[in-house]
């Protein structure tokens, strides 16, 4: 069964063709980074307009790369939420129109379930597992007992991990967004140079808080730092990264142990972070659990990841009506 998937919940416009919920035939992301960089950030009005412009292009390309035509598509999977209503509407309306025009079914998917199920596109993975979803807008721990069977174990109480990275990069004069730059410079510095706090590490529960680390970096460098010497900058990046990675890995492992889970999935844009991948891999080497990261092309927002749940729901007959509306706010355990 071939499903054409469409994602437009935030910054990226994306389309993909996925076979049987497991095999990615194409995965096209029209990165809007160029447009956004020119305007100094993401511009939603512009973003929606760009989604509208980019959607036909990415869909045609996804079909072409997969070597199929619309007539060969068995159903349409689309992100229903959470996200910006205007952005979600562009993808959802397009998917509805395609479903109506072709007479094929429409399946509505939660953005985060796409992320945490992405490893299934690259190999076998048994349920249940623990998922750490980390990106600019999300930091959540979920228990995943199957497709559509999720329980929220913990989440950030203030900033998401990716947001903390980008804001600290800004404080360090590395530009915005600069999370990836921190990851790179961290490799050159001393992670023990500055003892940044590890918020909520010793508290019970599995919630996160990253706002305090950001404030601690501000305290360390001052509100308007002169350009920092390279060695000092590297040390600050390494020390910040060490704090973030420790909090994320320790909390995740603790949640896995409490839930009796031995498989861990790390998904979302921050799952590309090399420091995080390295630490999780070191911990996995102890043999107590396995850790699964999607490939970088499946970590950031993309449409292929929607194929896993969309295929499953379509087989169950959980089809969405053409009157389906987007949901800006939508907890994963409510989907």
């Amino acid at each position: 069964m071939l499903i054409l998937c469409i994602e437009s919940s935030c910054d990226e416009t994306a389309a993909a063709v996925v076979r049987d919920g497991r095999q990615v035939l194409s995965n096209v992301v029209a990165s809007q980074v160029d447009v956004h960089a020119r305007y100094g950030g993401v511009v939603p009005e512009l973003a929606s307009r760009k989604h509208v412009e980019a959607l036909p292009v990415v869909i045609e390309q996804a079909l072409a790369e997969a070597g199929v035509t619309l007539a060969g598509i068995d159903g349409f999977g689309v992100t229903r939420g959470p996200g910006l209503l205007g952005a979600l509407l562009t993808g959802l309306s397009t998917a509805k129109a395609l479903a109506w025009a072709t007479g094929k079914p429409l399946v509505a998917v939660h953005h985060m379930e796409g992320h945490i199920l992405a490893p299934l596109l690259e190999g076998e993975l048994d349920f249940p597992f623990l998922a750490l979803a980390v990106s600019g807008g999300h930091t959540h721990l979920y228990r995943v007992d199957g497709i559509g069977r999720y329980r929220i174990l913990g989440q950030t109480l203030d900033d998401a991990a990716g947001e903390a990275y980008d804001k600290v990069a800004k404080l360090l004069g590395l530009g915005y967004p600069g999370g990836a730059v921190i990851d790179r410079l961290a490799g050159e510095g001393n992670p023990k140079a500055v003892a940044f706090p590890r918020p909520m590490l010793h508290k019970g529960g599995f919630d996160f808080s990253f706002s305090g680390i950001k404030t601690a970096v501000l305290q360390e460098v001052g509100p308007a730092p002169d350009p920092l010497p390279a060695a000092r900058l590297n040390d600050l990046c390494a020390s910040f990264q060490a704090a973030m990675v420790e909090v994320l890995t320790v909390k995740t492992l603790r949640a896995a142990e409490a839930e009796g889970l031995t498989r861990i999935v790390v998904a979302g844009g921050v799952a590309c972070n090399r420091g995080l991948r390295k630490r999780f891999s070191e911990l996995a080497a102890t043999g107590r659990f396995t850790v699964h990261f999607p490939s970088p092309s499946l970590c950031g927002d993309n449409a292929a990841m929607l194929g896993v749940p969309a295929d499953h729901y379509l087989r169950l007959g959980r089809v969405a009506g053409l009157d389906t509306e987007p949901l800006a706010t939508w907890a994963l355990d409510q989907c």
Partner: peptide
């Protein structure tokens, strides 16, 4: 329902 930063999401309700 934790009140988190809307920097990325732009609007939280």
């Amino acid at each position: 329902s934790p009140v988190t930063s809307p920097s990325y999401t732009l609007l939280n309700i």
